[in-house]
């Protein structure tokens, strides 16, 4: 958890909108929003039908808070946030997890890279620089990387990193249909199919006790594979 500071958001980031899908994050959401507000002015939180006080906690901040009346999954909440950000006039859209594991302080540098290199999307990678990743998490992630690189046809070092920055043009084309966790793989397949200009950026993931308790189970990984398999036939 970072300390609250009085740093003003970078004026160059006035068109940047952060989208945070949140499900039962009442314990941390307000702090994560406050930390991110030190970097970026516009934050959209999509409360995905939480059973706790996520909506109330997020509403206490300056974030724009939307609420799904029923839980539809992280992919669905992300798409809601992206569509809303576009309606609000976003020039770039950043996606972050709402448990505070992604480094919001990286946003200015990442946006600069996206703009200067004319990229469509910049994707975070926890494997581009050495960092401690819990063993079972590392094995699952590496398997996911192998599978996604094979099926999506693009080469990445981290395929399930929620830290992404999309240009407005790219975000307008995004249409996530995988409501739950398999949206991460779906986005990568979309990048390959739409021939988007992408790049990875090293990101450090903060593995706290809280974020680990909110993480996916091993069964979740199996479910992702099943979702992706059936999505092949749904055309």
């Amino acid at each position: 958890m970072t300390q609250e500071t009085n740093i003003q958001p970078d004026p160059d980031l006035s068109g940047v909108y952060v989208v945070m899908p949140a499900f039962n994050e009442g314990a941390m959401i307000a702090q994560v929003i406050e930390d991110t507000l030190n970097i970026v002015e516009h934050i959209i939180v999509v409360d995905d039908g939480s059973n706790d006080d996520t909506f109330a906690q997020a509403s206490k901040t300056k974030a724009l808070v939307l609420r799904h009346c029923v839980n539809r999954g992280q992919g669905a909440a992300l798409q809601t946030g992206v569509e809303f950000a576009l309606e609000e006039g976003a020039t770039e859209i950043v996606t972050l997890d709402s448990d505070g594991q992604h480094p919001a302080e990286l946003i200015p540098e990442a946006v600069q890279i996206l703009r200067e290199q004319g990229l469509d999307i910049l994707i975070g990678s926890r494997f581009l620089k050495p960092q401690a990743v819990p063993f079972t998490r590392k094995i699952i992630l590496k398997l996911a990387i192998l599978f996604t690189n094979f099926t999506a046809g693009i080469r990445l070092t981290d395929t399930h990193n929620g830290f992404r920055i999309l240009s407005r043009a790219a975000a307008e084309k995004l249409k996530i249909q995988q409501d739950r966790m398999s949206h991460a793989s779906e986005i990568l397949e979309w990048i390959a199919q739409a021939k988007l200009k992408y790049q990875e950026i090293p990101t450090e993931i903060k593995y706290t006790e809280y974020s680990m308790s909110k993480g996916q189970s091993n069964w979740g990984s199996v479910r992702i594979l099943l979702d992706l398999f059936f999505s092949r036939f749904d055309n």
Partner: peptide, 24 residues
């Protein structure tokens, strides 16, 4: 049935999305 379920889910999600934005 699984495919029908997926299609229904997409519709429910779209409804939920539009309701969330409209409510805001």
């Amino acid at each position: 049935q699984r495919l029908k379920h997926i299609r229904s889910s997409i519709t429910i999600t779209e409804l939920t999305r539009q309701m969330a934005i409209m409510e805001y």
